[in-house]
Amino acid sequence: MVSSHSAFDSGELTELAVTAAREAGQILLRGAEEGPVRASAKSSRTDLVTVFDRRSEDHIVGLLTAHRPDDGVLGEEGGERPGTSGVRWVIDPLDGTANYVARYPAFVVSVAAELDGVGVVGVVHDPSRQETFSAERGRGARLNGRALHVPHAADGLAEVLLSTGFSSDLAVRARQAALAARIACRVRDVRSSGSAALDLCWVAGGRLGAYYESDTRHWDRAAGALIASEAGAWVGDLDGGPASDRMVIACTPGVEQGLRTLLGHA
């Protein structure tokens, strides 16, 4: 058991995160097979939660704390529990709840580990496709064990397939929709999966050339942003700093300046 900074082992954390995310993914799949999933509203009628969000998070937290009782935990549904080891787990037990409720296969489990506030491990599991994206800081990113390398964009933004997301806050969503409409004519095409973590991983895998979204939360992007970065993507915000609640951008190298400028002036 790792309980001190000197004994920190990112490989052990990755293995634990992969196990937790895959087991939670099975909980979600079994839940979907049981029949229609009922959802209740949190902050708005479009901000949904199901019993399976909570079952997934409970399982992940239980597994992590059984192995590492001194770690902190930040979960979307359960809030924050402080720790003493310097490691904090950041969990989104079901990113893409609206998709899950609709049986639209674009939802994932996201588990990240931070050491003294810096992301060191990220795991995103897509149970519908049985794809597990993972990364360790400084050691690259992988998909089901295969190394990921983001290709460079040879022809600029005009050739980029871009994805974005929309807030559960309807006023914010209206502004996001207006921005997406202006962006759409400057790129190859626009998509929206409904899962920030999935979009970040698809940038890492070369399936998307860029992704941006405003009004995300830390658990939405903690694992996916590390995976994209370790695969070689540019990841940050409008000002070139770290990704934030205000804006997260991930893209193939070479288009970040143009995309940031476009988003800042669109």
Rank of each mutant, 00 (worst) to 15 (best):
M1Y: 05
A17W: 10
T19G: 07
A20R: 12
A20C: 13
G25P: 03
Q26C: 01
Q26L: 07
R30F: 11
R30H: 14
G31C: 05
A32R: 15
A39G: 05
S40F: 06
S44R: 05
R45E: 15
R45W: 08
T46F: 14
T50N: 09
V51W: 11
D53R: 03
R54E: 15
D58W: 01
I60P: 03
P69H: 08
G72R: 07
E77R: 05
S85A: 10
R88K: 15
W89H: 10
L94I: 01
D95R: 01
G96V: 02
T97C: 04
F107G: 01
A112R: 02
D116E: 14
G117S: 04
H125A: 08
D126A: 02
P127Y: 15
T132E: 12
E136R: 15
E136I: 04
R137D: 11
R137Y: 07
R137S: 14
R137C: 02
A141K: 11
A141H: 10
R146D: 14
A147D: 13
L148C: 07
V150H: 06
H152M: 14
E159W: 02
V160F: 03
L162I: 07
L162H: 02
F166N: 03
S168W: 12
D169M: 03
L170Y: 09
R182C: 11
C185Q: 14
R186A: 12
V187E: 14
R191H: 12
A196C: 12
L200T: 07
L200H: 08
V203A: 04
R207E: 15
A210G: 12
Y212F: 15
E213M: 14
S214T: 09
R221H: 14
R221T: 15
A222N: 06
A223P: 09
A223F: 06
A223G: 05
L226S: 04
G236P: 03
D237M: 02
G241F: 13
P242F: 07
S244D: 09
V255Q: 09
V255S: 06
T261P: 00
A266H: 00
